[in-house]
Design a protein around this nucleic acid. Structure first.
Length: 272
DNA sequence: TAGGCCATCTGGTCCT
DNA sequence: AGGACCAGATGGCCTA
């Protein structure tokens, strides 16, 4: 039974870490997901990406017919006086340069908006991947972004704490070595996720886990048995819920007491 | 209707 | 110069 739990917990940890690590920019990128909402891209992209009116340095002398300013400033009137011609040329050149700069700036802005949109889509995809490995019930509402991050933080903490306790109290030396090998086989980058901005350690009592996290990892409770640990944990859950902190529970960020109890039974089912 | 959440735009900053 | 990242602003949608 203990081995079963150990494998379950290791798999869950692995899923979370891998989900955090697999967020490469090109993986599952919904780059064209909401392209239709970009009202400027239809015109802006056409001009900025493929049109000869794009802000190229050599634009001034090589305007094409596609450019709205291409034919307007050609100097093909031989009847115009030379002086007036030069003055008008300077003025028109200045206006054209301003228009070119404005157009160039607008094109850059459109491209930047597109990149920013894709970047946020990637971020949302990563959050969806994280949500998919968090234990929620089917009828639960979708976790918000902040709830997802806090939930994942607490969930990892809870799993780590459970593993640590099992590691200390119940596993043999050989099993402990196996677990260490499993954890060490994970890519180092998986452990470098800095979700807690001040520190990646769970022991820092920052605003991140001030209300929503359980006790810090530095707390050195040493239960003599798993049953005692579970009993204390459940009692702690109920007391904290009664005291008005229902969201601290690591396995459900906004659950009612019934859902919390369900989660407790679900999570500890292998032990019961 | 106020407040929360979200998507998007935008300008600034830093890095390559 | 251009891209990535960030934070502020804004407007839409939803819910209590």
């Amino acid at each position: 039974m203990l081995l079963f739990f150990r494998y379950i917990a290791s798999d869950l940890l692995m899923l979370i870490f891998l989900s955090l690590c697999r967020m490469s920019p090109k993986n599952g990128c919904p780059s064209n997901h909401r392209r239709e909402h970009c009202f400027e891209l239809s015109d802006g992209e056409a001009s900025s990406f493929s049109s000869p009116c794009s802000p190229a340095p050599s634009l001034s002398q090589t305007e094409s017919e596609d450019c709205p300013f291409g034919g307007r400033f050609s100097f093909q009137d031989p009847m115009e006086p030379q002086r007036k011609k030069l003055k008008g040329k300077r003025t028109r050149s200045k206006v054209r340069n301003e228009l070119t700069v404005t157009k160039q700036r607008k094109n850059r802005r459109v491209k930047a908006n597109d990149r920013e949109r894709n970047r946020m889509h990637n971020l949302n995809s990563a959050l969806d991947s994280l949500r998919s490995v968090l234990p929620t019930f089917p009828d639960d509402a979708k976790l918000t972004k902040i709830e997802t991050l806090r939930f994942a933080h607490n969930y990892i903490w809870a799993l780590s704490e459970t593993l640590r306790m099992a590691d200390h109290s119940l596993l043999s030396l050989g099993q402990q070595q196996d677990m260490r090998d499993t954890l060490q086989s994970l890519p180092k980058s998986c452990f470098m996720m800095d979700l807690t901005s001040p520190s990646s350690s769970c022991s820092s009592s920052t605003e991140w886990d001030s209300l929503y996290s359980p006790v810090s990892q530095s707390s050195s409770h040493s239960p003599t048995s798993l049953l005692m640990y579970i009993s204390v944990n459940i009692f702690y859950l109920i007391v904290m819920y009664i005291l008005g902190f229902p969201f601290f529970y690591p396995f459900h960020p906004r659950g009612s007491i019934s859902i919390i109890i369900q989660n407790v039974l679900f999570f500890y089912f292998p032990f019961i």
